[in-house]
Structures are given as structure tokens and as C-alpha cells.
Simulated assay, not measured.
Amino acid sequence: MPQKKSYALFSAQYPPHLGGIETFTEHLAQALVAQGADVTVVTNDTNGVGAGITCERGVEVIRLPCAPLIGGRFPLHVHNRVFRDLDAQIRVRRWDGVLANARFYPHSLYGMKLARSVGVRPVLLDHGSAYLSFSNPVLDPFVRVYERGVTAWGKRRYDPAYYGISSKSVEWLKKFGIEAKGVIGNSIDARAYRESSSVRDFRGELDLEDSFVVASVGRLIPEKGIAALIEASRSLELRARGVVFVLAGDGPMADGVRMAQGEGLRWVGRLESPDVSALLQQADVMCLPTRSEGFSTTLLEASACGCPSIVTDVGGARELIPDESYGTILESASSAGVTRAIARLFDHPNAVAEQRINCGRRAEDLFSWEATAQSLMRVWEDLAERPPKGE
């Protein structure tokens, strides 16, 4: 009988913290468990649920104490007694494979260092297609210097095997002199996601029975294009067509979204996954004028629900929208670009109907967690045959 494999996933954030990497890590961990593996997720206690070790749906989760800087978007380890106790327990583990999510987190360096200490070459999965940004013109130039420095340090010190979450991520890694070995893509159980839908009736609740509903789901942060959505919601051209934007999510721009509510915009706050599924199944289209994505989970969720997407040309977009019969790639992330794309779809309902069928079928046929888990396991098996470089 083959020996049971043991794997570790290092992710700086993890649910209940909201984000694409968090969702990816959670579903990947469960898919690996379904493949018969023991899985440990090492993360940070960004939401204050309590540092320690728990078992969540068959996955061991170790949350380290941290300082959740920038609303938890950039956690730093707090080296107190609890951290030292947990670190000691982690260091006695022996894993057959280690995955670290994203290049720029100190937590990723921590994971790669631990992998090296047990003789495992880590896999570094990049989730970006542009520089990390906090939409701060003073801070962002320093962030770029940091990102280049921490990437060079991780590459030189720990020699990880680099992969991208999408073809855009693979291309982006070349900017740092990194030739990725391939793609380990984001996924979704499309049928299960649709069937998980709550019974919440957003159209009835918001009095939108006859409206053309444009949904947007995710963190309310500048780089997600929230300002462009707010401005587009004020467009007289779209209002004349009965277009209403429904924004779901929370974040630093929540107050601005709340104040912008009116005839063309509704805000429903942060939704749990079943409500997001319900909203996407009731929407006409989903709009994501984001600055950067590795492979947007929201884009996958919308496709699974048969909700065509209007999205910038970021990671994952071309994989899910190979041509206009599957969705819309924005020419511009500006409010004018968003307005033009929505008006064009409103005026061509047959095109929207075709996109609904095609995007739903593509998500179900080509993107599964089982396939992603098996792909990663093959990567780990291949790396096990070649020892990592010495420190």
C-alpha cells in the first residue's frame, strides 16, 4: 500500500480573511485531502480568531500570531512565546511537498526556509500580474523596491521552483528574471458552486426586477477599479438603459461606495459564498475593471454561474474568455471604457445569451480542483527526484 503523502501550504492569509489567494488555498487544501493526502496550511491570525492549531474540514490549519498591517493585507509575524511554540511544532514536521503562495510576503520566505530545512525544494506560486500596490503614490515606489528585493532574496537563497497561477503571471515573472516552469491554475467546482446558492432574491430585495444588473464582487480597494464602477453608475447613457450596479464586498472604500448609492448603484456589503452565488446567477453580467489579478476567483465564480464577465486583460481573463463569445475584455479600465462595454452588451442581448452558455460550459469543462491538485502533486513528485541546492 503506497505511503500517505504529507503536504504543507504556506499562505499569508486564510479564511475568514477575504481574498483570492485565501479562497485558492482553502479549496486546494481540500482537494489534496480528497486525493488521500495529509495537508497542513500554515498561515497568520490576521482576523484575530486565535493563534494555534485547528482542524478545518480535514485540513490542519496553523495560525501564527501576527501584526495584521494594512488591514491584514500585509501580516508580519510576532515572535512571542506562542509563535515560538508553534514554530517549534512546525519544524519537526516532515513534508513531501511545500507550496508558498506569492513572492513578496515574509511568510512565504518563512515557508521556503522551512522547506529547505527538511530537504524539500519549495514551489513558489505567483498570483500577480503587476506590482503590489496600495494605491498610495508615496508608498508604492518603496513597495516596488521592496518587491524586487524580496523576490531576488527568495530566488537566490531558497531556489524555489516558480509557477504562475495564470499565463499572465508566468509572463510577469520574467520581469524579475524568472523563467517559470509552468502554470498551476485557479479552479472551481462549477456545479457545486451553482448548487450552493442561497435562496436570497436580490432583484426583489433591491427592486431590480426589470433592471440590467451589473454585479461586482470583491474587496473594496482602489486597485479593483471601484472608482470606475462608481463613476459608470452615474452615466446617463447607462441609466437610460436601466442599468444598475450591485457591489458586494467590504474594504477601505466602503464609505465611498455607501455614499455613492442611488439610482444606478446598490451596495449589499460583504456576502457569504452562497449569497455571492445567488447574486451572480441573478445578474446579467459581472464587471471587474481591476488593475491586477493572478487568476481572479470572482471571474471563475461568475463563469460557473453562467454570468458573463467584463474584465480588464489581467491574469485568468484570456483563459476564461478566449474570444467575445465567452465574455468581454475591456479596452480600458476607465469609467468610459466600462460604460461603453456595458452599453454594447445591453444593446445586443443575443450576444449576452451566447456568452452565458459558453462561459458556464467552459468553467465546468476545463477548471476543476481535482485537476489542479493532481497537477501540483506531479510537480512535487518531480522535484523529489532532484535535491535542492545547498544554502
Rank of each mutant, 00 (worst) to 15 (best):
D159V: 02
S187Q: 14
V217E: 09
S166H: 01
A192K: 13
P222D: 08
A227P: 02
E171F: 03
R157M: 12
E195F: 06
S135I: 01
G182H: 04
I230R: 00
E179A: 12
R200V: 13
S166F: 02
V246F: 05
G185N: 06
A232R: 00
R203V: 09
G185K: 03
Y131L: 11
E171R: 07
E231Q: 11
L236C: 08
G164V: 04
Y162T: 00
A215I: 06
A228F: 02
L139T: 11
R234Q: 14
G164C: 04
L206H: 05
L229P: 04
E171G: 12
Y146A: 12
V170H: 01
F212E: 09
V145F: 05
P222S: 07
S129Y: 03
A192C: 13
V123W: 00
V145P: 05
N186T: 06
Y146N: 08
D159K: 00
I178F: 04
G182D: 08
P160T: 02
Y193K: 05
V145D: 15
E179R: 11
R194V: 14
D207I: 07
D189S: 12
F134T: 10
K224H: 13
L208P: 15
Y146G: 11
S133G: 09
D210K: 15
G249I: 11
K175R: 11
G225D: 06
R203Q: 09
V213A: 15
A152E: 04
S166K: 01
I165D: 12
A215G: 10
S129G: 13
P160H: 01
H127G: 14
V244L: 14
S133I: 09
V143W: 01
G204D: 14
L229V: 06
S211E: 12
D201N: 15
K168W: 10
L206V: 10
V145I: 10
V150R: 00
T151C: 08
R203K: 12
G177Y: 03
L206T: 14
K174G: 10
L206M: 14
R156D: 15
I178W: 01
R144H: 13
L124W: 00
V138N: 03
A190Y: 02
Y158L: 13
A152F: 00
D207M: 08
E223L: 13
F142I: 10
A130F: 06
A215E: 13
G177R: 03
E205K: 10
A232C: 07
A152D: 12
R191F: 12
L220Y: 00
R144Y: 07
A228S: 13
I230D: 03
Y163H: 08
R157A: 14
G177A: 10
P160N: 05
R241M: 13
W153G: 04
R203E: 08
F142C: 15
P122I: 03
I226C: 05
I184S: 04
D210L: 08
A240Y: 00
L247S: 07
G204N: 06
L124K: 00
P122K: 01
S216F: 03
N136T: 05
G185Y: 03
G177T: 08
L125Q: 03
S187N: 10
S129N: 11
V244K: 02
E231T: 13
R219E: 15
A152M: 04
N136E: 05
S135C: 07
V143P: 07
